[in-house]
Design a binder for these strands. Structure first.
Lengths: 196, 196
DNA sequence: GTCTATAGTGGGATAGAC
DNA sequence: GTCTATCCCACTATAGAC
């Protein structure tokens, strides 16, 4: 098997280390204000050492970090529908409360990426689109089972829920003592006939 | 009177121009990723020309921009209490929907400023504290008139309202077609015995 | 008041030695 | 695989001419 011993193994490990460090640094300062050198020092090698492992330069590092994290996150939602999906959203928030770095990474990058020139602009556009789709579908499924309060429209409920999620994250990141998961659960329950 | 003619007048005008440009550039790219040179070019002078007017360097520019904007914003809320204050919040959102730059400036800067090392960290900490205080007080005043739905706690309502405000701004900035003002009004009405 | 010139720092990237 | 050396660029800031 490749990547399990000798030279291959060492490379794979280094890439892991670098990704971890890159994640931490990007999370702290965003993409633009972070330097490859900073990441390199965190790993204990030089700038050129890092670039050796990521041929595409700094941008390749960013892409790799994002892909790795997203694969992890979407895993938790796969296969879930309706109320189960909504409950999973609450759980994701609960987990995130223990991972300030992850939240900060996405906040920093998605903020920078509002600029259409930003290398990750399309990535975040598409990501948000997918999320809205998925949450809307979940509310639709609940609606189909008569599980929504009267007059609630799935897409509106989805946008509302996402807004509340983003907003609670913002306040929490700024040091306020808010319970993100409970806040979201409470908010979702405002749309459901029977609370989660 | 000082600042009305001759050399003084020219200086004052230049400072205005520079502040305007600085605001636009900071709004687009945040503080760190913006350069004095970029601002200078927007005004049509050189980098050193700008620094001549703002002795404290780039940081003095940032401070000046923030102070100017905040004075303007807090003006709209002065003297208002209770339901009138909450209604003013909705109105501010309505105005902001026409000023993408302002919203983006605060989003960019407050995101960067989560880092305790950031020059504007304390500024944003204190600003958020003041806002929470003010909104909580407004809900308290409504409570005192029996204007809240049963079981609603003023501070919780305030935090919730702010979260929704931030969240709607986030989605709106990312290009989604959401009506921030109506969203906030709808949300506040969820707490009030009699809707706004 | 604004300029040119320049110092000093730090960024990303490449070539080539070991 | 990782290094040193080097290139080129952009940034902030200062000194001093006009």
């Amino acid at each position: 098997m490749a990547g399990t011993r000798g030279t291959y193994r060492k490379t794979a490990q280094r890439r892991e280390q670098i990704l971890e460090a890159a994640f931490a640094i990007f999370a702290k300062n965003g993409y633009t204000a972070s330097s490859v050198n900073e990441i390199a020092r965190a790993v204990g090698i030089t700038q050129t050492g890092v670039l050796h492992h990521f041929a595409g330069g700094k941008l390749a590092l960013l892409t790799a970090v994002l892909q790795q994290r997203d694969a992890l996150a979407e895993e938790n939602l796969r296969g879930k529908t309706g109320r189960e999906f909504l409950a999973a959203l609450v759980e994701i928030s609960r987990v995130q409360a223990g991972q300030r770095g992850v939240v900060q990474l996405y906040r920093n990058l998605s903020t920078e990426a509002v600029d259409p020139e930003h290398p990750a602009h399309n990535y975040f556009r598409e990501r948000l689109g997918r999320i809205i789709e998925a949450v809307t579908q979940a509310f639709s499924e609940v609606l189909a089972e008569d599980g929504l309060k009267p007059g609630i429209e799935p897409r509106a409920a989805a946008l509302n829920t996402l807004a509340m999620t983003e907003g609670l994250e913002t306040l929490w990141l700024q040091g306020l003592d808010v319970d993100m998961a409970e806040g979201i659960r409470w908010h979702i329950n405002g749309f459901l006939a029977k609370p989660l």
